[in-house]
Structure formats: C-alpha cells, structure tokens
Design a binder for these strands. Structure first.
Lengths: 254, 254
DNA sequence: ATCTAAATCTCGTCG
DNA sequence: CGACGAGGTTTAGAT
C-alpha cells in the first residue's frame, strides 16, 4: 500500500454493522490510533469500586496509551473510565438464532489494582479512527510552584527579614513547602496554596509545625504561616486556635 | 421538515472546509447535540490559571451542557477543558488576501470565575454531531457512604458495645462522619475512608476530636477512630502520636 | 454563591 | 511499586 502524501489520518463509519465497527475499532487500536465510538451501550465496571449503567447513547474514546473514557452528554468527568496502561479488546457476540441480538463488547482491563470495564454496544451509530501527531507540551502558569518561586525571589513579600533556608524540607509528618527563619532567628514553616484555603490546609500546616517542634526537640516554638490568596472563616478560626498565621499572597499572573 | 423514522442521530464530515466545519459545529451546538472535532489546533486558556498549547492534532468535544474537553492521544484528563455551564461560540477568521491562513476559532467562556478557553483550528480533519438519549443513572457501590451504612447496621464491627448516635454531627471544625459512644459511655468520633489512608485523614480526624473536646468543654477525653481498609506507616505513627485509633474495615463489595 | 469533604479522584515526583 | 501532596482538581450536598 502506498500513501503518497500523508497516511490516512481519519477514518469514519456512520451506522456501521457491529461487525464492521468491530473490525474498524480493532484495527484502530492495533494501529495505535485514537478510536471513538458513539452508540447505544451499557457499561459495567468492577475494581476499586463497582458500577453499572443501563443502556443509553454515549461517546466512548480509546486512546493508544490504554485509556478509555465513556462520556454522556453531561458533565466534565466521564461516567466511566479506565486509566492509561490498560489492555483493550473488542469482540462481537453473535445472537443465537435470529431471536437474540448481537452485541459489540469493548473491554478494558488492568492489574494493580485488578480492574475491568466492559462496554456492551447494541447499536453503533458512528466509529472514527484518528491518527495524529502532537509533540507539544502544555505551558501553565499560576501554580503553587510559581507562588513558591515568587517568595524565594522576594522573601520580604512574606514579612520583612524572612530568610528561606530550604524547600521541601523533610519532617516526620511530610515535606514542608518552605522552611526558613524570621528576623529574630525563629524557625518558620510555610505552607503554600495557590487558591483560597479551607480547614484541610490549616491541618496540614499544623501537622508540619507539630512534627518540626518535636523534631527540633527544643522548646523554642516554631512559627507556622499559611500563604494563600485568602482563607475561609472556619480556616481562619482554626489558624488562631492553634497559634498559626496567615499571609495573603497569590501566584504571579503572567 | 419531516423526520419519518427518527431524527438524524449522527452527522459526520471528513476533511471539511473550515467554513463547512464552522457551519456544522454551530448548528450542532444550536441543536443541543454533542459535537466533536478532530484536527490541528492550538489552545489558550485564561482564568483560575493560564495556559498555552502550541499546534498539534487533538480531539475536542463540546457537550450541550456547556462542557468542553480537549484531549490529546495520552492521559485520562483533558489537556484543557471548561466545566459545564459555559457559553460556546464558533467563528471563522478569514486570512487576509491569500497569504494569511484562515482559522476556525472555538471559544468557551464563563463568569464566576471569569474563564476563557480558545481553540484555534488551522485544519479540521473530522467533525461529528451526535444526538442521543440517555435517561439512566450510574449505580455505584463501594463508596464511603456504603461503609457508613455497613457500620450503622452492625456497630459491633467497629468494636463491641459501640453505639452510633449521629452522622454528620456538626463541630466547629466540620461535620463528623459518625458520632457515638463506646460501652463505657465515652464519646467517640469516627472518620471513614473507603481506601487506604495517609497523613491527611489522620489530621482530619484529629481536627474533629480537638474541636469536639473543646465543644463538650469537659475533661473527659474524646476517642477518635479512623476506619479504613488500611493505613500507611506514617499515618499509623501520627495516629499513635495523637492517641488516635484505627479499625480496619472496607466498604461492602456487592 | 460559598463552604466542606469525597473521589474508581488523576498526575507527577520521589524513595 | 507505594507514598505523598498538588490540582485550572470535579462533583455533590448543605448553608
């Protein structure tokens, strides 16, 4: 077979027979393409939890990395899915005689943990196979990491005289975002959040401060500072209850 | 217009002109259908954070509820997205003279928070419009809620003589999963997790126990029990450090 | 609309 | 492989 210009990048079947759909899906998976199917199906999942979904029209996407996604017409999250690294198989189950209906079964399995997703199509309205190229990486700004860099560049943003000594400093309770000391030489633990925080972030900071106080084995109290754009009321109360502090800072915008 | 049997459920164009793609996408969105496009595009996002993605072949899905998802050939998560409730627009930008290239721009915006996603196609390899029906709900078992029901049905699973008194009991630090008392009449706070837990779950439990001890204003200590299939080493250490307990229980399997 | 916590969270990173 | 924490988390429920 010769492909003069570029290889086939897209192949679509409308209202295919189940056998034609099976063949196209199987060859798409074998070619490491991105395969989609839209049609009436039911879905069973068993693994970390277990779920069942009765028949309806859904959009199914199989990626060459072993991901499978089942989308309804609502919501950002797939109604069922399987993560990258799974094995896909597609199989046609013939109805017995003329009475039972045939079905197309798309199955995805993995181990560690043992998980299985089974999509059973009674009708396939459309199958597509897409072969593309994508070499690029997403560039993202506004993360917690950006906020950390901002503080390390200009420690006075936190408070005058603050000196960062380490990032990701290990404690028995986990790694501290920024560890440093204030102008009086007191140890400071900083927990960073890129957005408004609730009680969980306060607990996290408290855990680190506790651990560090035990670890330093000194009576000199360790200061704990939560750095985020803002806090909820309850989080603010929890901060005071435990002698922790808050400084309002956002990740850089650009 | 008459549709004798059933209305058009799927409409697909392979390698359409940008104008034909625009027309099909616009009418699909207007018809409240699920619309997909595959082709070479770049993607810009600005909102809670900001991101940029150079040109590559990707799969874009617009749902009638205002969701938009941009998928590459890898990963379970879309590389870019917009949540339900957004406004979609599709627009053709003509190149100037014959020198500049035309482009198809798919844009999704929302407020609270202000967010914008822009997908700029230089080539569309396939556009599909799907109209289906899906009335069913997912049935899921193995959740934290299932674990709670299991304990409420058979409190002795936790320990002999335990009596549940309330679920979602309010404290200044948040709502406790199960509140009850042991055979000696001591107050018990239970935090449930459907899977193996780490330090965060311990902190959460500690926060509730702390708050309840203050709230009850008594010196009688409140017992805190973490109920989960298992704990990590560090979490186990944190539990002992704070006088908290652990009971191994899983959500029911069926 | 905001708060709070669960989730088959997913994803990267590090030991 | 597990552990740990970030995430434009998303989603559901309560206030």
């Amino acid at each position: 077979m010769t492909r003069s210009e570029d290889e086939t990048r897209v192949d679509t079947l409308e209202r295919p027979s189940l056998e034609a759909a099976r063949e196209t899906i199987a060859s798409g998976i074998a070619r490491e393409a991105l395969v989609t199917a839209f049609g009436r199906c039911r879905v069973e999942y068993d693994g970390r939890a277990a779920s069942s979904l009765a028949a309806g029209d859904r959009h199914v996407m199989c990626k060459p990395d072993g991901t499978i996604l089942v989308h309804t017409d609502e919501g950002q999250k797939p109604v069922n899915w399987q993560p990258p690294g799974c094995e896909h198989t597609v199989e046609l189950v013939e109805g017995e005689a003329d009475t039972t209906e045939s079905a197309l079964i798309l199955e995805s399995t993995r181990s560690t943990p043992e998980e299985r997703l089974r999509v059973t199509f009674e009708t396939v309205l459309c199958v597509s196979v897409f072969a593309g190229t994508d070499d690029t990486d997403l560039s993202l700004v506004g993360t917690e990491e950006d906020l950390r860099e901002r503080i390390l560049e200009t420690p006075d943003l936190l408070e005058s005289g603050f000196t960062p000594l380490a990032t990701e400093r290990a404690t028995p309770a986990g790694a501290v975002d920024i560890y440093g000391e204030d102008s009086a030489g007191r140890a400071v633990v900083i927990e960073l959040k890129r957005r408004r925080v609730g009680p969980d972030a306060v607990s996290q900071l408290r855990r680190y401060v506790d651990a560090l106080e035990r670890d330093l084995h000194a009576d000199a109290a360790v200061r704990g500072i939560l750095v985020a754009p803002s806090v909820t009321d309850r989080a603010s109360r929890l901060l005071s209850d435990h002698g922790l502090e808050f400084v309002s800072l956002e990740p850089p915008a650009e």
